[in-house]
Simulated assay, not measured.
Amino acid sequence: MIAVDQLNLTIQPNEFVCIIGRSGCGKTTTLRMIAGLEAASEGNIYLNGKKITGPGAERCVVFQKYTLLPWRSILNNIAFGLEIKKINKKERHRVARKFLDLVGLSDYADALPYELSGGMQQRVAVARALAADPDVLLMDEPFGALDAQTRNSLQNELIKIWQKQRKTVLFVTHSIGEAVYLADRIILMDAKNSGVHQIFENPLPRPRDRNSSHARSFYQQVHQALEAI
């Protein structure tokens, strides 16, 4: 079975791109291939002109599950990627504290993951990815398991962080509303053709009002395109 076929996509540096589509259309498979966690049977994927052949430090993934190490403090969870890079303890803790503060959790440096709520743990996962200083942040439905209020709050936090750090973000979601709020471009994938069905340039200025007439209109445009496939 072919998960993704005839996929031709270019993402610009510092761009925030969301991929949406029905279950089975290849959203997560595409993200995992870019991450180097799965290999394409045909074709190639390049980052800054270099072929992707496996995982690399220039790409970090934030999954739907928090994947924090339960025996490590929040500070040491964030510092984990720097530890792998052999950064000395003083420097990696300095960087980890910077990103802990960036996600608003500086008071929880010594806590263990189980002591934090789900939303707080996901903020730690985002901070850990950013602390590793990747060129590309890959996010696979990172807020999908959260309640609506926490989800909206973390979307706001993510936009603030992205505007400060200016990373390239590829964000997979089932939520059209989430994509409309977050993305510069929305990639609609089609399970029938195993590839890109349509690409939407997001016309909404930042900061965005979720409830504006323009947001509702753009939501309907994307929703109608999804319903038609």
Rank of each mutant, 00 (worst) to 15 (best):
residue 193 N to D: 10
residue 4 V to F: 03
residue 30 T to M: 00
residue 202 N to D: 01
residue 215 A to P: 06
residue 60 C to Q: 15
residue 132 A to M: 12
residue 84 I to W: 05
residue 178 E to W: 02
residue 74 I to F: 07
residue 63 F to P: 00
residue 120 M to P: 04
residue 72 R to V: 03
residue 94 R to H: 11
residue 10 T to R: 11
residue 72 R to I: 04
residue 36 G to M: 14
residue 29 T to S: 11
residue 130 L to Q: 08
residue 69 L to V: 14
residue 214 H to V: 11
residue 167 K to V: 02
residue 5 D to V: 12
residue 194 S to T: 13
residue 125 A to Q: 09
residue 168 T to M: 03
residue 40 A to W: 11
residue 164 K to P: 04
residue 141 E to T: 03
residue 38 E to Y: 07
residue 62 V to A: 04
residue 64 Q to W: 03
residue 104 G to T: 09
residue 32 R to G: 02
residue 42 E to Q: 14
residue 3 A to F: 03
residue 60 C to F: 07
residue 148 A to N: 06
residue 157 E to S: 02
residue 92 R to L: 01
residue 222 V to M: 09
residue 148 A to H: 07
residue 175 S to V: 12
residue 141 E to G: 02
residue 146 L to M: 05
residue 48 N to E: 15
residue 141 E to R: 01
residue 124 V to I: 14
residue 173 T to D: 06
residue 52 I to E: 05
residue 1 M to I: 15
residue 101 D to G: 15
residue 8 N to F: 12
residue 82 L to T: 08
residue 90 K to P: 02
residue 113 P to D: 12
residue 53 T to F: 13
residue 25 C to G: 03
residue 129 A to Y: 08
residue 163 Q to K: 14
residue 19 I to L: 14
residue 229 I to L: 12
residue 5 D to Q: 14
residue 4 V to Y: 05
residue 193 N to G: 12
residue 203 P to I: 09
residue 219 Y to L: 11
residue 168 T to K: 01
residue 112 L to C: 05
residue 223 H to F: 15
residue 149 Q to G: 06
residue 19 I to R: 08
residue 36 G to A: 13
residue 222 V to D: 12
residue 188 L to A: 06
